[in-house]
Write a protein that binds this DNA or RNA. Sequence first.
DNA 1: TCTGGGGTCCTAGGACCC
DNA 2: TCTGGGGTCCTAGGACCC
Length: 431
Amino acid sequence: MAVTRPSIALVDCNNFYVSCERVFNPKLNNKPVLVLSNNDGCVIARSQEVKDLGIKMGVPWFKIQTLVKHHNIVVFSSNYTLYADMSNRVMQIISHFSPNQEIYSIDECFLDLTGFQHLNLIDHGQRIRATIKQFVGLPVCVGIGASKTQAKLANHLAKKRPAFEGVCDFNTLEPEGLDRLFSEIEVGEVWGVGSRTKKRLAELSIHTVLDLKKSSPKVLRKQFSVVMERTVRELNGESCIPLEEVAPPKEQLICSRSFGAPVFSLIDLTQAVITYTTRAAEKLRQQKSVAALVYVFIETNRFKVNEPQYNNGLLVPLPEPGNDTRLLVGAALTGLKRIYKPGFAYKKAGIMLNDLSCADAKQKGLFEDAELQAHSKSLMQAIDKINGIMGSGTIKFTGEGLKKRWQAKAERKTPAYTTRIDEIPIAYAIG
DNA sequence: TCTGGGGTCCTAGGACCC
DNA sequence: TCTGGGGTCCTAGGACCC
């Protein structure tokens, strides 16, 4: 019996954040639209029209304001609540098309379609597209290949080349046809080849995907690393990166934000650090972990080269690993007080929870008070439950402050259309 | 005036040990 | 004047991804 080659699909939403905004505002279709990062800092999502204008990913917003005005580009602050909810809906639908799904990021997932070859996989991909379009209203493209790296590349072609009509399956191509296609794509499009690596590859006369595919994995491993060796093998159809259906718990949790306006006082920094630590602690409990270390950091604005700069951070070990917000906040504030220096214009602060482990497997500390432990656990559970039902921040620690001078800017945010009853869109029938 | 946030993996090199 | 070598563990930093 012939061994069936693996068929891995990558389903990826087109211009995801922009498309989410368009679902609730169809007038934006065919118009240039972009979405800004947190604090309305830089561009993180662009419609095709914006890409065509030459606006690059990640450019600071203030640098393109004339262009924006001139071309009537519609600009939004990011609305993560909306995008996360839309993402859940999309992933839920896609899960019906294969029992094996890996949610890779907010807007893309891998599917194992090995063994589905009796179906026409291009038709299967088209059904995925049509279903998502019908039920959620978002456009997606599907790339299929013998490995994840191939699927990524196929998806790139499905998006770029109209001839594929949104679905590209490398496994249906003859080897010569595939090589010809690979010879037309820049090596920088390959998953895992960033700008630095692209430069170094160019020095080795590796410019196209085909060049890389034909390279010796062993030689490249010596020059780069084991990651590059895997990439070459994957391009050749050897699947080296397995599907991860269950997301492993995070090894580190970060919560940090730039401030909407410069911050000088310890009071404001304290509020921000309490807010971020509270958020990180929620995520920590969600994945049922405990942390052993809290890292807190503060930064001035590194772009203002003429202003005095001060960046510092401190790792604070906890007496016992834990996930009680009060414990984590206490550690973070101890650190903050140690690193804070007056007289600087701070732009950003953040905390990191490190050395995470499973809460259930936690070693009982020698002097731990079982009663206190139980009390902490039920208090945190109660807070998480209330915030889960009533909305995040319903119950919070007073130290967070009510008037947050430091809060990030989000001046162009659309409503939480799908998650808040009072912000749900209303449709009127014109009779 | 205005420049995001959150994560992983890998390697090199130092510290330390025998 | 001579000045080991090998192994492990940890951390910082680079590179990448979305």
